[in-house]
Design a protein around this nucleic acid. Structure first.
Lengths: 335, 335
DNA sequence: ACGATTTCAGTTATCGTTACCATTCAAGCA
DNA sequence: TGCTTGAATGGTAACGATAACTGAAATCGT
């Protein structure tokens, strides 16, 4: 492998100068600079990141701790974060949490030794933040920024970038209300997570604006996470009970699909008998029949924000504790 | 941060001994060893990976070059590969190719400088292998193994682990034939990729075993990759033409879903009028109505194989140029 | 035209670890 | 006993890069 010394020899300068040309070109005279650059080019020199990392006290990789890469929300996010980091010359070290808290803890403890450039936590699972806070503060104090994506952790002092769930759901419920189909039900977990609360809050806000009181029999609080079966079960149950409902705002696309399947299995027509809007904007939503209307996330914008944050960090600027990204309402066949 | 020197002082030995305890414990006397271990424990020492990497000439990270992490095949694979690598103390550096050849090339060229432990290419896209071969050979010669996952590149000398597509499709077509519904169509790209050829080969083998000649009007060669719209278009067209067909073997789940939608849109019943089996085993296949029968991949087994390969590499053993993983036929409602 | 300041490049030390060689000491053997 | 052999450990020099310091030349102001 070709090293700084090789380049230096070829350019007739010292290794330091080579380093300078690469890191802060403006403090080197134009003549020397171009000679060095030429040598770099000719020899195909690429700095050894481990030597750099050792010397500078930190590497070029950012760890992404993701809830479950297999879920499309996370894989989409991962894709854009990777692109965003690559755009500013950083690498993505991927760790799949698989929804296990102990792994998060362990990873966070290893992080300092890894000399990471930063840590992104992208998980919608409940994070034992109280317990983790000292570890995280230690990391931040040691120069390793920790940010949360998709889950608001700003109250714990962790810069967070997330979608504005309340506004998104609110807009979708507005739409369902405007179509004047009758009662709108809400399907999703509410109390178990901040995101759940935020989404439900959007539902309440929309009803409130329309001057409608929340009917408890139309709030179906699914217990079994955000999965398909729960949606199917809740919808089936409501239909069994004979609840009068013309549209459903589901807090996830899986739930929505489950609810839709339950309705279809009972020979109800979607959207004629029941309109359904999901949340998440997963790609398969467009391919099921009827195609699922949904409140889609904007992973690209999320990625851009992350890029902005890291760029700010690199430049030594302060970063905001809270940033929001707008969701968008994607209307397809189901509503 | 605590270093070897700190540990050495506390244990009353030299840094060399500490290093030895950690890397080859058996050449240190039990007494010293336990004293060192105790000091490591007490101080919470964690080796600096960059210093190690610099000294030893390579790091602990493996790059995964993935076609498109957003596709569930790849995200599932990524998940298991990450777990497999972590199990042997390696880290996963993720790069999303986004189906762009130039990126693959660029990444491969940067790889040597990154001092990677290895490179996994997981892409079903056409790889300009002839052009890339010298670069890859350079990497291998430089001690960085390159392996392919999901695409057979063994003819180019690249160790590959992939599903046995031919056997999988063959088994599924056997099943469709056995149900005696009549003509079985094949839907998918054939000539454009080795995987396409392998899958089609499975179709041919099954027909051949059953003593049936391949009917060209039942072979629908979709041009537009493996996507939904292509499936929809091909199926529609065949139906328009009045082709007599009772079941469809689709080379991807997206194609299958497209074909299914086309059939459904023409008021045909699935599986009663037309049975459909897809390929890929994506998770949403279970959630669409009717639930999609499919030939499912086995990403976990793939991950295990990769772990085996890297373990072998670490141990200095030779690795096989070709390994296969069995697909499994998942029968749901559509067949 | 002379000292003060700036610009530019080189020298040296260091980041934390491990490989190589040297050293010590005990055991084995004739 | 004296010599070889081996096990166990320590000293030191790298790995490849950069930061702090140093020195020389160039620029500046008056």
């Amino acid at each position: 492998m070709v090293t700084v010394v090789d380049v230096a020899q070829r350019a007739g300068v010292s290794p330091t100068t080579v380093s300078r040309v690469l890191l802060s070109p403006d403090i080197v005279s134009p003549g020397t600079r171009s000679r060095v650059l030429e040598a770099v080019e000719a020899l195909g020199y690429q700095p050894n990141p481990m030597a750099q990392g050792l010397r500078m006290g930190r590497g070029r990789s950012v760890a992404l701790l993701v809830g479950d890469i297999e879920q499309s929300v996370y894989s989409a996010l991962t894709k854009h974060i990777q692109a965003a980091l690559e755009a500013i010359g950083l690498e993505l070290l991927l760790f799949n949490l698989g929804h296990r808290q102990d792994r998060l803890r362990g990873l966070l403890e290893r992080a300092a030794a890894l000399r990471l450039r930063g840590i992104c936590i992208a998980s919608s699972d409940v994070i034992p933040i109280r317990e983790l806070k000292p570890t995280i503060q230690g990391l931040v104090a040691g120069g390793i920024p920790v940010i949360s994506i998709g889950q608001r952790l700003e109250r714990a002092g962790i810069p967070s970038v997330a979608h504005d769930d309340t506004a998104g759901v609110s807009r979708a419920v507005d739409y369902l209300l405007e179509s004047k189909r009758g009662p709108v039900a809400y399907l999703g977990r509410i109390k178990t997570s901040a995101a759940g609360r935020a989404r439900f809050q959007g539902y309440r806000q929309a009803l409130q604006r329309a001057g409608i009181a929340v009917d408890e029999s139309l709030v179906w609080e699914s217990q079994n996470r955000y999965r398909y079966e729960a949606g199917y079960a809740e919808m089936s149950e409501a239909l069994e009970r004979g609840v009068r409902v013309r549209s459903v705002m589901a807090a996830s696309d899986e739930l929505a699909l489950g609810a839709m399947a339950a309705a279809l299995d009972r020979d109800l027509r979607v959207p004629d008998d029941i309109a359904i809007i999901g949340f998440g904007g997963v790609s398969w939503g467009a391919h099921v029949r009827p195609a699922l209307s949904t409140i889609a996330g904007n992973p690209e914008a999320l990625g851009e924000h992350v890029r902005g944050l890291f760029q700010a960090i690199e430049d030594g600027r302060d970063i905001p504790l809270r940033s929001s990204v707008e969701l968008k309402l994607v209307l397809r066949q189901s509503s």
